[in-house]
């Protein structure tokens, strides 16, 4: 019995990481209706940037965030204004295919620079530390990851609903033309949204790199996890996305408990079941 409870707890904490994968995806879809196929590869890029930073400066991965986050945010802004803004419009093909091309480019650039060997960010003592809670041993790193996920989502929620930046995001999302009339330059607003999304991606990448080993090819899988969390939770609802991540994480750990080969499959099946019975997700945003 304890083993099963343990699986559920591990799954919930894993869900925090998936919510972090999903938050950036959800954010940019909400603001500019863009689905970024390269999202997962950008997470892996952030992990490798963390690797280079920790190796070169000899600092802890958490400190590396101070460098990786601004870099990823800057990259997001440049990417959006230099490339992705040109793809936005009524036709869904250009953004889809351009980000798909971007995904292949990032993946192979990482392969060229870092080779296909799996890497890991060394978090030191925190990786093995755990807190005993009634017969269970809860890892400090997964717990911290979950806490960070909650913090990030609360932060995004605050930015969205309590700041001028968020007001701009919502206005542009509602009606791009009228938002321009208010003096908002949508190209710039989109750039800021992507910058914010990639700042979150940086956090996700570093936490992923400390949790498991990574290689250039695993980006697609992270995109899928993030996407599934978004759909399970309901489009446009950030807290729903966290719930979606948790459901996905629990499905995976329980599946893995039954048979290690079933871990990922169980997550996908949970997603398909939600899609079958609640196509708008479990917690869709209520339109005014």
């Amino acid at each position: 019995m304890t083993e099963w409870i343990n699986a559920v707890v591990q799954g919930i904490l894993l869900g925090g990481l998936y919510a972090l994968f999903a938050a950036g995806l959800s954010l940019i879809f909400g603001v500019m209706r863009l689905v970024n196929i390269a999202h997962g590869d950008l997470i892996i890029l952030a992990a490798y940037m963390g690797l280079s930073t920790t190796v070169m400066l000899g600092v802890h991965p958490f400190l590396a965030l101070l460098i990786v986050m601004p870099l990823m945010a800057g990259l997001g802004y440049v990417l959006q204004r230099g490339l992705l803004n040109q793809t936005l419009g009524p036709d869904i093909l250009p953004p889809l295919l351009v980000t798909f091309g971007l995904s292949v480019i990032i993946q192979n650039a990482l392969l060229e620079i870092y080779t296909a060997d799996p890497q890991k960010l060394s978090g030191g003592a925190i990786e093995t530390a755990s807190i005993p809670v009634g017969g269970l041993a809860i890892g400090v790193l997964p717990l911290l990851t979950f806490a960070i996920a909650v913090g990030v989502i609360a932060g995004l929620q605050w930015i969205f609903y309590s700041t001028g930046l968020g007001r701009g995001f919502r206005a542009v999302s509602d009606n791009q033309d009228i938002a321009q009339l208010m003096g908002l330059n949508k190209a710039h607003v989109f750039g800021l949204a992507m910058a914010l999304a990639l700042a979150v991606v940086a956090i996700a990448g570093i936490l992923l790199g400390m949790r498991t080993s990574f290689d250039p090819a695993i980006g697609g899988g992270r995109l899928i996890f993030g996407f599934e969390a978004v759909i399970i939770g309901g489009l446009g609802n950030l807290w729903g996305t966290l719930a979606g991540g948790v459901i996905l994480g629990v499905a995976q750990t329980i599946g893995g408990k039954i048979d290690p080969g079933w871990q990922l499959l169980a997550g996908h099946i949970a997603f398909l079941i939600v899609l079958a019975i609640r196509p708008n997700g479990l917690f869709p945003r209520i339109e005014h």
Binding site: L83, P94, V98, G101, L102, V104, I105, N108, A109
Partner: peptide, 12 residues
């Protein structure tokens, strides 16, 4: 990478 780049340029 060249292939991906060519595809992006063509698409745009």
């Amino acid at each position: 990478m060249v292939l991906g780049l060519v595809a992006i340029v063509v698409m745009l």
